[in-house]
């Protein structure tokens, strides 16, 4: 059975949601890894969960990225291991340099907590989207105050050229427009991957949408894709 690590920083608050979703909804093995650890110990994938690591001091994710375990996560990612950063986890991966760009406060300055629609923009698969089809939309929640993704024109062009823009905010019909952009993110970007495609960062929370009683189970396809890649089923 494939095994995932959920990294826990002081201030992580979606670690248990991720653990529960992966273990009980999807059926993979999972363990928590405290940020002071210096080894990941034979895991097949890493989840960097949401929250407010180190109270968002200095910048979101800026201090967590220097936690001892992050060196291991970087090494794991460079070797091709599947890594997903969700919300604050995405911010940490940006600060760690595993993904390009940076995160600004939401344009409207409000914390946004609501359901959004996402469109799979990328044509090329990632370990987290292999069961999805390009253009497919899913409905999962966001909950963040700093999800306004920014990057230089040059970086944005590279992201486009390499098919690294994985998710964009859209309406229920999959149409992309400024009106459905919840935070001011350039190009309605909700999630991107690295050039090797094994590292995904996304602001919306698939782990909070794995059971219909939570309003949506559309997030399951992200973890089911991972399971399918890792277990070859």
């Amino acid at each position: 059975m494939a095994k995932c690590a959920v990294i826990v920083f002081p201030g992580s608050n979606c670690d248990h949601d991720a653990y529960y979703a992966v273990k009980h909804e999807i059926g993979m093995d999972v363990n928590f890894v405290w940020h002071k650890e210096t080894a990941l110990n034979d895991v097949d994938a890493v989840i960097v969960p949401g929250g407010f690591s180190y109270g968002d001091y200095l910048r979101s994710g800026a201090i967590a990225r220097f936690s001892p375990v992050m060196q291991e996560v970087v090494t794991f990612a460079r070797k091709g291991g599947a890594v997903i950063g969700i919300c604050n986890g995405f911010q940490i991966l940006l600060e760690a340099g595993l993904l390009p760009g940076a995160m600004l406060p939401n344009e409207h300055l409000k914390f946004s907590c609501k359901m959004v629609h996402l469109k799979l923009a990328a044509a090329t698969a990632t370990p987290f989207t292999g069961l999805m089809e390009q253009g497919q939309t899913i409905q999962i929640p966001i909950a963040h105050g700093e999800g306004n993704y920014t990057a230089s024109e040059e970086t944005l062009q590279i992201l486009k050229d390499n098919d690294q823009i994985v998710f964009q905010y859209c309406n229920p019909l999959g149409e992309i427009s400024p009106e459905v952009n919840p935070n001011g993110s350039i190009y309605n970007i909700a999630g991107i991957c690295n050039t090797q495609r094994n590292v995904l960062g996304m602001m919306p929370h698939p782990e909070r949408a794995c059971d219909p009683i939570l309003g949506s189970d559309d997030g399951r396809i992200i973890f089911n894709s991972l399971k399918s890649v890792l277990e070859g089923v």
Binding site: A62, F66, P100, A102, L104, T150
Partner: peptide
């Protein structure tokens, strides 16, 4: 290294 993020 830490205090500023030179991306932004």
């Amino acid at each position: 290294k830490l205090l500023a993020n030179e991306v932004m």
